[in-house]
Amino acid sequence: MKSKVYITRKLPAEIVDKLSSHFYVRMWQEEDVPVPRDVLLKEIEDVDGLFCLLTETIDEEVLTKAPSLKVISTLAVGYNHIDIQAAARKGIVVTNTPGVLTETTADLTFTLLMAAARRVVESSDYLRNGDWKTWSPMQLTGQDIYGATIGIIGLGRIGEALVKRAKGFDMNVLYYNRTRKPEKEQELGIHYATLAELLQQSDYVCLLLPYSTEVHHLIGEKELALMKRNAILVNTARGGIVDEVALYHALKDGQIWAAGLDVFEQEPVPVDHPLLTLPNVVTLPHIGSASIQTRTNMANLAADNLVSVLNGNKPLTPVISK
Rank of each mutant, 00 (worst) to 15 (best):
L209D: 09
N172K: 15
E183P: 13
I153A: 08
Q201R: 09
L188F: 14
A193S: 11
T149F: 14
E214V: 06
L218N: 03
I150P: 03
I219C: 12
G147S: 05
K222P: 02
N177G: 10
H191F: 12
R180D: 00
P210C: 01
H217F: 09
Q200D: 10
G220R: 14
Q201H: 05
Y175S: 05
A193G: 05
G168T: 00
T194W: 15
L140G: 08
G189V: 00
T149V: 07
E197M: 04
I219T: 05
E221A: 01
P210D: 00
H216Y: 09
C206Y: 03
G168A: 08
A148W: 08
M171Q: 13
G220I: 11
A193M: 01
F169N: 01
R178W: 09
H217T: 02
P210R: 00
A193Y: 12
T179S: 09
Q139L: 15
E160T: 01
A166V: 06
A196E: 15
A148T: 01
I219Q: 11
Q143V: 07
G168V: 01
L207I: 04
R178N: 04
P210S: 00
G159Q: 01
L155T: 04
L188E: 08
Y175K: 02
M138G: 04
A161G: 04
E160V: 02
A166R: 06
Y176W: 15
L209H: 03
Y204M: 12
Y211E: 03
T141N: 06
I158E: 07
H216M: 04
Y192L: 14
L155D: 10
L174I: 00
A196T: 09
L155K: 04
E185L: 12
D144N: 09
E185A: 14
